[in-house]
Computed example of a mutant assay.
Amino acid sequence: MKYFAIAAVAACAFAAPLHAQSLSTAGTLVVVPAFGEVKRVNDQATITLSVEEVDKDKAAAASRVNTKMKQGLEIVKKADPQASLKTQGYYTYPVYPEEAPLPNGQQRKARVPTAWRVGQSLQVVTSNLDALPKTVSAAQAILSLNHLHFSLTPETTRQLEDQRIAATYQNLNERIASIAKAMGRKLGDAVLDTVDFEGPGNFSDRVAVTGARAMPMALSVAASAPQSVAEPSFEPGETTLSMRLVGKVRFK
C-alpha cells in the first residue's frame, strides 16, 4: 500500500504541471485562407470559322479564299445579325514536294514550290445560343468550323461578383468558427483583424480564343459548289467563377 500511495502522489505531481502548462491563446493571431465559387450556365459562344485553298496558281488559291470568306461573312451576318465578327490571320505559303535525303557530299538544288496554300479565319462571338446550330450549319456550307468555346458574357460575370464575394466571406466565417472550436475558444473571442482579397481568381471568364489553322486540303484547281450541312448539336455547359481571400483573426 505504501508503494501505491507514493505512485499516486507522483502522478499528481506530474499531472499538475502539465495542466498548468496548457497553451494560452490570448492575443493569438491566426491567418485563415478562404475560398468561394459560384456556377452559372454559359451564355456566350466563341467560334472560329476558316477557309483554306491549295493551288499551283497562288492567285487562283487566294481568289477562292477571298470569295469564300466574303460569302461566309454574309451568311453569318444574315444568320446572326447581333454577333461580333473579327477576321483573323491570313496566310500564304509555298508547298514543296517531299524529297529523299541526298548521299553525303551532294548538295540539293534550290527547291521549287509545287503549289501554294492560302487561308483565312473568322472569329464569331455571340450570345444567341438558340440560333448557334443553325448559324454554324449555314456557315459550314462555305467555311470550316475549327474552334468552339462556351463562356459567360461580361455582363453575367459582373452580376455574379456579389455572389462570389458573399460565398468567399461565408467560407471565411465557417473556417474561423472551426478554428475557434479547435482552440477551445468561443467564436465571440475572435476579432477579424484583416481581410486580404489576394488573387480573386476567375474575375474574367478566361476565354481562350485561338485562330487555329485549317487542316491541309487536297490539291484542287476549281472551287467546289457549296453543300448543305446538317445542324450540329451543342451543349454550352457551365462556368465556375472562384475567389480567394486571406483573413487574419486575433483572439482576445
Rank of each mutant, 00 (worst) to 15 (best):
E98T: 12
L23D: 14
A34Y: 12
V76L: 11
S63G: 08
I47E: 03
V207I: 15
G188L: 05
K77E: 12
D189V: 09
S233Q: 15
A7P: 02
K68Y: 01
S50L: 04
A100K: 12
Q159A: 03
Q120K: 13
V136P: 00
I75F: 04
P113H: 02
S224L: 13
L18V: 11
P94L: 09
V112Y: 11
F251W: 10
G105A: 08
A13N: 02
A180R: 07
K58H: 05
T46M: 11
V51M: 08
V125N: 08
A180K: 03
N104K: 15
N171I: 01
N104E: 15
M217D: 11
E174G: 00
M243A: 04
A223T: 08
R40C: 07
Y169P: 00
A5E: 15
L49Q: 06
F150P: 00
V209A: 14
P94Y: 06
M69S: 04
A230Q: 13
V209Q: 12
Q107L: 14
Q44M: 11
G36C: 12
A59Y: 05
K77V: 11
S233N: 14
Y91H: 14
I142C: 00
V76K: 06
K68A: 05
L145H: 00
V207E: 15
E235L: 06
V195L: 07
L192R: 07
M183W: 01
L18M: 14
A131V: 00
Y3V: 14
L18Q: 12
Y169R: 09
D80A: 06
G184R: 01
K39T: 10
A208E: 15
P97Y: 11
K78W: 08
A138V: 02
D162C: 00
T153A: 00
R206W: 12
A8V: 14
S204A: 13
I75G: 03
L29T: 15
K70P: 02
T239Q: 08
G184T: 03
K56A: 02
T67Y: 04
M69Q: 06
A26G: 15
R64D: 04
K186M: 00
F14Y: 06
S233L: 14
Y3L: 14
T48E: 09
A100N: 08
A190D: 03
H147T: 01
R244V: 02
D130P: 01
P236W: 04
Q106K: 15
V65S: 01
V31S: 15
N42T: 07
L187R: 07
G89H: 04
E235P: 05
Y93V: 10
K248G: 02
S50D: 10
S178T: 06
S242T: 12
V30P: 03
A100D: 10
M217Q: 13
Y90I: 08
E99A: 11
W116M: 12
D205A: 07
A222F: 06
T114D: 15
A59S: 08
L23Y: 09
A83M: 05
L148H: 01
A166N: 00
A34P: 14
Q159P: 00
L49P: 01
D80V: 04
Y96D: 13
I142G: 00
P97F: 11
E174D: 10
T126H: 03
K109F: 10
Q120F: 09
L187C: 06
V31K: 15
V65C: 02
S224A: 13
N128A: 05
F251Y: 07
T156I: 00
L143V: 02
M183C: 01
A212D: 12
Y90Q: 10
